[in-house]
Write a protein that binds this DNA or RNA. Structure first.
Lengths: 168, 168
DNA sequence: CTTGGAATGTCAACAAAGCTGACGTATTGT
DNA sequence: ACAATACGTCAGCTTTGTTGACATTCCAAG
């Protein structure tokens, strides 16, 4: 590897070479495939897709959330979300209730069936994550999270932080 | 948070709680959006998509690679890749040459224009990665890579390892 | 030398999931 | 009363993935 840097440059910045960055980019690409592979298999059986998974995940995460809130978390248009949400409601996995204070709002909850699918999906995803965490160790996990957080968009990070430490 | 674990359990395994795993899952989701955001903006202007980016990236990475090899790296069908590849070839960003030893194979290279787009895309992506790396520091980066590698599928990891240390 | 299989390319049809734009309805706040 | 907000929906378009079918070209084994 010759990236034009002087040989006397300390090792401390070696993790910023183009080669290191490229490896990081490829690691993200390949790892994300693994990250979604297990839930994808479950979803395919029920003829759902990743969009359904994401909706289910964040409704589980923030029960009673409104459509608008979900929209801004997911970063998609309401038309796109509506298609997914409609099928989940029709299939009885999600319940949509008119708001108390503001009747324009719809509050979203998982039904028992929805919670069951959520468990199946997140169990599969957590199993892989757990194996990766266990293999890498606590220090690596801390670094993993640090880099990922630094990689987010500003606005996205606010969503992430906002639900970061909410109790289960 | 009450996940049913005894309070006397050491801190050493705290990074394996469901809550920690869930945070990791959400961090992956949000970070991947940031990871693709910058190249996506460039691609949208040229009416290309992520599939074009991926093809360009790995052709740049492994010049002269065959279609079949690219297929297995990207994990898509040949019909899907072919559509993308055809447009790149038509637009003069990728050159496809018949193999010497085996004339059934097509060897793929970036043209000068293709290399130019590749630079624009990877510069944008690397800038964000560099900022994240710099913010997190070398130890965090090592952990980041460790966890990502442990998260890959077996077969995928082989692709990753295979091109891991090839010189630029 | 013939034939089977591998590598590639192409056509057609389809689905998931994103987008824009337009419009309707109910409700809220000014 | 009226404007803005929240939501749902219709129509149409794009990208990117999928199957299935089929032709071509070529290598290699029989």
């Amino acid at each position: 590897m010759n990236d034009g840097m002087p040989p006397q440059m300390g090792q401390s910045l070696l993790f910023l070479t183009d080669e290191q960055l490229r490896k990081g980019i490829e690691a993200m690409f390949f790892a994300y495939r693994g990250f979604t592979a297990d839930p994808d298999r479950i979803l395919a059986q029920k003829s759902y897709g990743r969009a359904h998974h994401r909706a289910i995940h964040f409704i589980h995460r923030s029960p009673g959330t409104t459509v608008n809130n979900l929209l801004s978390i997911l970063g998609v248009t309401k038309q796109s979300l509506n298609r997914v949400l409609r099928s989940l409601i029709e299939d009885g996995l999600v319940a949509s209730t008119v708001g108390q204070r503001d009747k324009r709002e719809r509050h979203l909850h998982l039904t028992e069936a929805g919670a069951e699918l959520e468990r199946a999906l997140s169990d599969a995803q957590r199993d892989r994550m757990r194996a990766a965490y266990r293999a890498a160790g606590p220090a690596a996990v801390a670094g993993f999270r640090q880099v990922l957080e630094a990689m987010m968009d500003e606005e996205t990070r606010h969503h992430y932080e906002a639900m970061k430490d909410r109790p289960e």
